[in-house]
Amino acid sequence: MKLIGSLASPYVRKVRIVLAEKKLDYVFELENVWVPETRIALANPLGKVPCLVMEDGSALIDSRVIVEYLDTLTPVCKLLPAGGNGRERAEIKTWEALADGIMDAGVLVRLERTLRAPEQQSADWIARQLSKVTLGLAAMEQRLGAHAYCAGKNYTLGDVAVGCALGWISFRFPEIDWRAEHPGLALLFDKLSERPSFKDTLPQ
Rank of each mutant, 00 (worst) to 15 (best):
N32C: 06
K23L: 05
E175D: 14
D200L: 14
V53Q: 14
A148Y: 00
W34E: 12
S131D: 15
I102R: 00
K23C: 10
R110S: 12
I17S: 04
G86C: 07
S170N: 11
L98D: 06
D71I: 03
M103H: 02
A97W: 00
M1D: 05
S6G: 12
E112M: 09
L79Q: 02
E181Q: 15
A148G: 11
P36E: 15
N32Y: 05
D190T: 12
L3A: 04
E175A: 13
Y69L: 06
W168C: 05
L188K: 04
E194N: 11
L70Y: 02
V107Q: 13
P75G: 13
L130A: 07
R13E: 04
L187P: 00
G145F: 12
R110V: 01
L70I: 06
Q129C: 09
P10Y: 03
G145L: 08
D71R: 01
Q142L: 15
L70P: 01
G106R: 03
M103N: 05
D62I: 00
A82C: 10
G163T: 06
C150P: 01
G184H: 06
G57N: 10
A127Q: 14
D200W: 03
C150H: 02
R172D: 06
Q129F: 09
I66C: 08
T74V: 08
M54N: 12
S193W: 04
A148R: 15
L24G: 05
K132H: 12
A146T: 14
E141N: 09
G84V: 01
E112P: 01
L52M: 12
V133R: 01
T72M: 08
Y69I: 06
D25K: 13
V12Y: 00
Y149I: 08
T94N: 12
V65A: 15
N44Y: 03
L202W: 09
K23E: 15
L70A: 03
S193G: 14
D200S: 15
P50Q: 11
K48G: 06
W168P: 02
L24A: 06
R143D: 04
T72W: 06
D124V: 13
D190A: 15
A97D: 11
D190L: 09
E141K: 08
D62R: 04
D177W: 07
